[in-house]
Design a protein around this nucleic acid. Sequence first.
RNA 1: GGUGAGAUGGGUGAGUGGCUGAAACCAACAGUUUGCUAAACUGUCGUACGGGUAACUGUACCGCGGGUUCGAAUCCCGCUCUCACCGCCA
Length: 426
Amino acid sequence: MLQVSVLRENKEKVIQGLKKRNFSDQDLVIIDTIIVLDDERKLIQKSLDDKLNISNQVAAKIGQLIKNGEKGAAEAAKSEVASLKKDIQQEEEKMRTVSTQLETHLLNLPNVPHDSVPPGKSADDNFVFQDWPQALPELPDTALPHWDLAKKYDIFDLELGTKITGAGFPVYRKKGARLQRALINFFLDQATNEGFEEIIPPLMVNEASARGTGQIPDKEAQMYYIERDDLYMIPTAEVPVTNIYRDVILNEDQFPVKMTGYTPCFRREAGSYGAHVRGLNRVHQFDKVEIVVLEHPDRSYQMLQQMIAHVSGLMEKLELPYRILHLCGGDMGFASASTYDFEVYSAAQKRWLEVSSVSNFESFQANRLKLRFRDGSKKTQLAHTLNGSALALARIVAALLENNQTPEGIRIPDILVPYTGFKILN
RNA sequence: GGUGAGAUGGGUGAGUGGCUGAAACCAACAGUUUGCUAAACUGUCGUACGGGUAACUGUACCGCGGGUUCGAAUCCCGCUCUCACCGCCA
């Protein structure tokens, strides 16, 4: 959620930014609507506060009168307050109306893209920030997509998952299960070596947490919801981990707060069907190691680059061909100010698959979370939040299986061997 | 699931209707003293939203939401959470 003060003070910048998100002139009217509502809110508050002030004074006076035994005067004062109280009620009613309108508009306004974000309408306009420098791997015609490799080596089973739960819930077995565990441990070790604190968070969150990171109201339909207990299954570790710092005021010297967490992620993902979602390309439950950082506003973009470097390192250690896209305004997430997507090349499907998304949310999430810090002058200021996948497993597994297939089996990258305990998956 | 106790500022903890945005102590911060450290002393020490160039000032908040009252941390109702015991259980 943006702050109204930002809309006021940097209105031109906000307009330019939202245009990158393809806001029309008509859409942009919302900014003025919000400012007008906020002006109105201030007026009402002033008048309400003044009336409350009088009411407080009269109440104190009545107390004195009663103490002094001046009953008549006290009764007179009481009747004086009666009409004032009616006024106050009306003002409070107005205040509620204006505040909820204001809140609704603000909640539905997306974050302002950073200056560096390329313009564009859709995923086709994303900027290739870093391409794969070599020729893309080519496999012989006999090469199999990962869902066929899964059958061949009995490493994961989607039909079985359908029997137990429903479509999109894979069952990993044998060396496939071991590979999952190896990757999780590898990713966690890599992150903790970089100074990220390891967290094992709850896999369900309450509404306040879902709201804090912006899943509600924007992406509510994407989450599984347990009505009986009013809880949401997490779509990413970002939600519980970032919410550790909801309603927290940090000291400046605590920055950067770096956390990592492995969790399964649950996504309803209603929509697309067909070849693009076959196998592990899109599932309802997958494993992911997430990195979350809280940083000083002055340094958050440096941190974003560090996080990109970290994820790049993972891809390189896994010897997977990848590229980095800087998402254009039209393709960015609602809460993000700048997002870089990592895509792995899946040689048998001959497609790029998204495996990581690294974003700086600036103060957008912090505003909802009330995540602040005290600056040098002891004033509180919103912190910046960032996060990224490091990494999401399902599609990494898909690419790894496809790209590394040989007649003898699937070659495990050297760095993973200590984790898997085998060099060839067969 | 049942019963009982509780929820106050960074911490401990007073406070049963007006003098309490909140005592006291601890912690923290700034200063004085000191050869240094410690101790002692003095001062500062919640958040948010407003008004004002500023000094300053208004309002709200004592788990959350309602209610009673001229006036609520304090009384009433509902909820949530924590702790203890019982039951069940990985």
